[in-house]
Design a binder for these strands. Structure first.
Lengths: 190, 190
DNA sequence: GTCTATAGAGTGATAGAC
DNA sequence: GTCTATCACTCTATAGAC
């Protein structure tokens, strides 16, 4: 029999897409089985805790990606403007310019929020904290930086909702462009 | 037998809360039955089309509320600044200052988007169109008005996602305050 | 009797757990 | 694959208003 290579880590991107598209409640084991090509037995072998463990692993995987690709650079890059520009580019790439929604946002709005409350909250607060720091280094006064950061993260989530609701990625692209103009203006800072 | 009051219209606010909290997929008939206090027989008496008809009726009810309380005033109030101020107040009241999410946004992010695609899209485009008009009458140049409107509607949705994700209504309240400063600045227009 | 609102047992299908 | 619980839904029965 053809031992098709899988380890748990290989499954996470596939599972991520399933939860992103269907939400936690809507992602049935039948769908997960079809999309991963694995039977229920294999899925329970990798994730003994069942669907909840799969979703938790996906959230951890997403969180790790953002931590290394977005949050840490935001915190550590000394040039705040460069840090923010990189964040906007990574964000655009990750959300495929609005064709992909945020699985954490999807979980946040549904019943699943309660089940994954800690992970959902920490993802957003880590993002807001890291961005506020970079905005400060980019020259925004501390109080403005905090408010602007919260607004930017909310705006990204809202643009994803709009893009999905209107079935059109353009609102997301326009929003990122406007965000860039506000967060990294041509002249060093307001 | 105890003829207990209900007509279809009385059920819509209750159903709205159930779908808002649980999403379409998460709102089981058992939950709906418990929350409305009605047995399945009664529910199917009012909504022969079942859960899908209940959700469609809730979306129509929400849409009607926004049409009469938000969109039409935005279109018809000649004073753009007054129209926008009224919209922000109605929005704050409707979403209970961030303690309530948007059922249309909840549907938009989940699988249910496809099922209710037309209603979901038209809700957001009606809002953006109406607000863009009012922003124009408030003195914003037409191109800015369109972009600003899209941004404002997205920002409201994003703030609701954040408020729910962080389990804290404060981000929504702060967002509305900042929005007011940008949409209706102290001096007539930028 | 007819009509409307009610309750809930019972249907097959499908869920997630194992 | 097997299991049980739960899903959306159907159907029958019943109570009261007319």
């Amino acid at each position: 029999m053809a031992r098709l290579v899988y380890e748990r880590a290989d499954l996470l991107p596939l599972l991520g897409e399933v939860f992103r598209e269907h939400g936690f409640e809507g992602a049935s084991l039948a769908v997960i089985s079809r999309r991963t090509g694995l039977g229920k037995g294999s899925l329970y072998h990798f994730f003994p805790g069942g669907k909840e463990e799969m979703a938790a692993a996906v959230l951890a995987h997403v969180d790790h990606w953002f931590e290394t690709q977005v949050f840490r650079p935001l915190r550590e890059e000394p040039d705040g403007r460069r840090a923010i520009t990189a964040m906007l580019e990574a964000t655009d790439a990750y959300f495929r310019s609005g064709r992909r929604v945020c699985v954490v946002g999807v979980f946040a709005l549904a019943e699943s929020r309660d089940r994954f409350a800690v992970k959902v909250a920490s993802y957003f607060s880590a993002w807001i904290d890291a961005l506020a720091g970079a905005l400060g280094r980019a020259g925004h006064p501390p109080d403005d930086a905090r408010a602007l950061s919260e607004e930017a993260v909310g705006l990204i989530q809202g643009a994803l909702v709009l893009a999905r609701a209107l079935d059109d990625p353009a609102p997301f692209a326009r929003t990122l462009a406007r965000l860039k103009a506000r967060l990294v203006p041509e002249r060093p800072a307001p």
